[in-house]
């Protein structure tokens, strides 16, 4: 029995899955919109507490990583296996830098006692509580997606190396790339909403 293969179908499935991910975050964006409307001043002030510099660095890093994933796809399409692997490695390195920054950013807040459920947090004004709750929830869920994406890309990298992803069959790499762009896309919205609108 021959194996059934349908690249267009596989990509269609991935796109639909990405819709569901966007809607998943959509629920949070809705909560953000409602709360921002209700506590506009306090959101404005709370946003000053976030470090826009680290946020900007992470944005650049993620945009770069999206570019390298796209370059990896082109490299594999052209049959340049070594470059394909290398670009994925750069992507994973970017993911590492992002996590590194995030670790220090969160770590700093934790060290001053600012985390969900802490006494300090509960004592703040309502708008502050909700802003930081949304900050931790949204960036936390985003980081979770980033980690999952990194694992997927690692598997894909190994498969390029072993040759099971090649210039004749690269739909898995494309789908992994699509997922990575999603991770990037979500951040593109989180960054201004949390860090820039101050």
């Amino acid at each position: 029995m021959e194996m059934h293969r349908d690249d267009i179908g596989a990509k269609l499935g991935m796109w639909i899955f990405i819709f569901t991910e966007i809607l998943l975050f959509g629920g949070l964006f809705l909560v953000y919109a409602v709360m921002r409307h209700r506590y506009a001043d306090e959101f404005h002030q709370a946003a000053h507490q976030l470090n826009a510099f680290i946020g900007t660095v992470n944005t650049v890093v993620l945009l770069l990583s999206s570019a390298t994933v796209a370059m990896s796809i082109t490299a594999v399409q052209k049959g340049e296996k070594r470059k394909g692997v290398l670009f994925i490695l750069v992507t994973l390195l970017c993911a590492g830098i992002f996590l590194f920054n995030k670790y220090f950013e969160w770590g700093h807040k934790f060290s001053i006692g600012l985390y969900p459920g802490s006494d300090m947090m509960i004592g703040l004004k309502h708008g502050y509580i909700l802003f930081f709750s949304l900050y931790f929830f949204m960036t936390g869920l985003h980081v979770l997606h980033l980690i999952v994406g990194s694992i997927i890309l690692t598997v894909i990298m190994i498969r390029i190396q072993t040759g099971s992803i090649n210039e004749g069959n690269y739909v898995l790499l494309e789908n992994g790339g699509l997922y990575w762009h999603l991770v990037d896309l979500i951040w593109i919205f989180l960054f201004p909403l949390l860090y820039l609108i101050t």
């Binding site: 909560v31 709360m35 969900p116 459920g117 947090m121 509960i122 309502h126 509580i129 909700l130 709750s133 949304l134 931790f136 929830f137």
Partner: peptide, 8 residues
């Protein structure tokens, strides 16, 4: 909400 008291 139950574990972390995010307050939404």
């Amino acid at each position: 909400e139950r574990w972390l008291r995010i307050g939404f």
